[in-house]
Amino acid sequence: MIWESWSAFWDMGGRGFFVWGSYGALLIAIVAELMALRSARKKALESVVELKRLP
């Protein structure tokens, strides 16, 4: 462990805002993309179900 404590870890030598701002943005982007992927898949499958119901 190179950090003295967890608060030192979160503080990042006083640069916590910049480090966690970057990683936070990455996290948000990934979650947003995953949600978009999921809803697109759901919509596609629903339209296939719709097509199947038609004769």
């Binding site: 990042m12 640069r15 910049f18 480090v19 990455l26």
Partner: peptide
């Protein structure tokens, strides 16, 4: 650069 360089792991 201090700790802030750790951004490069994703940047």
């Amino acid at each position: 650069q201090g700790e802030v360089y750790r951004v490069i792991y994703i940047h």
